[in-house]
Simulated assay, not measured.
Amino acid sequence: MKSYSNMKVYPKNWETSKKSVLKNWIVRYIFIDPKGVEQEATFKGMNHIKDHALRVQETKRLIEDEIYMLERGYNPKTKEYNDNSGLNLVNPSTLFLTACNICIESKDCVETTRTDMENSMKHITKYATKLGLHMKQIKDITKGDIKQLLLYMKNDKHSNYRINKTKSHLSACFTFFTELDIFQVNFVRGISKLPHESAKKEIIRTQEDWNKFHSIQHMNLNVYMFLYIFLFSGCRFEEMAKVKKEDVELEKSIFWIHLLKGGKHTRAMRAINLNSFKYWKIIYDRAKPGQYLFSHNQLPNDVPVKANSLYDLSAKYLRKAGLKITGYALKYSYLNLVANVYGIATAKELAGHTNEKTTKIYAVDYEMQQVEKNKNIDICI
């Protein structure tokens, strides 16, 4: 059954009147969604062309493109392709954007990673459409296509960070396609990253700022207890959101978190710092068996809270306290202190990092501290 009506261009004299280029053109049609509901759909994309004959030509091409996509399950309202089989499957003939979306949907990752990849897909969709890649089957996508997409982003003044992030997410998709034998190698890895230097991370360094942090206890004690626990945990919000009462062993001053890295689920032990122990005990004693410790209102509950909610709430109260930092800046602040006092190896173990290079991203003052220490090396020769 045909899922769309005939496409009509407005103004109606678009093909015959040269003066019509002074107006904005628009294509309208009726789209029938998978539930059988009729909805009006529209699109443009030709109005930047001022020559009448060229605009007519481009409009016809856009209509052909729209029909091509509609006949392959494209939904103009969701901007996605309907999977008529009921299964999310990728084969060499799957359209490029559809294949990427299926990869992201099926990827076993934490919530924030999936959200980040979905944000990148907005850019990928925009520039793939501009380049006509949205009509290419995945098997026909080349390294040059992906490079052109990234160059288009560069020309549109996207930051090197955003372009590199988009490339990284595309590479993750093409690893998936390579594992399906659609490609022999992941050629996206061979595309060079653009130079990017991260901005200096704002963290808590002074006693004045630590006093501001402690002032949160007078605003919302539950939030303060959670932030205090999070500060000394070395964990991520995703990991803290999933901690249940059974994951805590107060008598041993340890708790367990669930990690998801590289598509693998693991359970890892973390220390309950002596400074935060009293707050762990308060929350633990409030919780019933099976409850998540840090749920809505930072209280135990049967239903877990989303990591983004913890992130947003943390930022809100840190701003109220006069600190221009995010919740994750607390992790940076703590690991920075640990690295400076106990060394980078201890900070690495505390954070559960696999290499010191990652830990040094958090320990923002570590290299400077090492240089300062090296100035006092006293060797007489």
Rank of each mutant, 00 (worst) to 15 (best):
G86K: 06
L221H: 14
N211R: 11
D312C: 14
D116L: 12
P289F: 05
S93G: 05
N119C: 12
N75M: 05
N222W: 12
Y342A: 11
G263N: 03
C173G: 07
M7L: 15
D285M: 08
L323E: 03
F176W: 09
F96S: 00
A271P: 06
V9R: 04
E246S: 07
E197T: 14
K331L: 05
D285H: 07
K154Y: 09
D285E: 12
K79N: 11
L299F: 04
K348M: 10
L95Y: 02
Y362Q: 09
H353R: 11
S198H: 10
V371N: 14
H214F: 14
V37K: 13
I138F: 02
S198A: 13
R267S: 10
K212W: 08
I67S: 00
F174T: 01
F294D: 02
Q184P: 00
R55S: 00
E249M: 09
K320M: 14
K357G: 12
R205E: 15
H258V: 12
K201W: 03
E179R: 13
S20M: 04
K139N: 04
I26N: 08
L293K: 02
V185T: 15
K154W: 05
L293S: 03
K154S: 08
K261C: 02
A99S: 08
Q291Y: 04
Q184S: 13
H196P: 07
R286T: 07
L318H: 07
N355E: 12
N340L: 04
T266R: 10
L149N: 00
Q39D: 07
L70T: 00
V90S: 02
H258Q: 13
T129A: 11
S253Q: 11
D116S: 15
D145S: 05
L293R: 03
P289N: 07
K165T: 13
C380Y: 15
D145N: 10
P11L: 08
A53L: 08
P195G: 06
K154R: 13
I257R: 00
I163T: 00
G352F: 04
V243P: 00
K35S: 15
M121G: 07
A172W: 00
K201Q: 14
T178C: 12
N91I: 11
D312L: 15
S215A: 11
K373S: 12
N164L: 02
I204W: 08
L310K: 06
N275R: 14
T59K: 01
K360H: 07
S5C: 04
G73Q: 02
N336K: 10
D83E: 15
Y161T: 07
H48Q: 12
S215T: 09
H196D: 15
L170G: 02
N164G: 03
Y279G: 09
K23D: 10
V110K: 13
T16G: 05
N273H: 15
L227S: 09
E367G: 01
I102M: 05
K50C: 09
K8S: 11
Y366E: 09
G132I: 01
A307V: 11
E80T: 11
Y328L: 06
M69F: 01
N24E: 10
K44H: 11
M240Q: 02
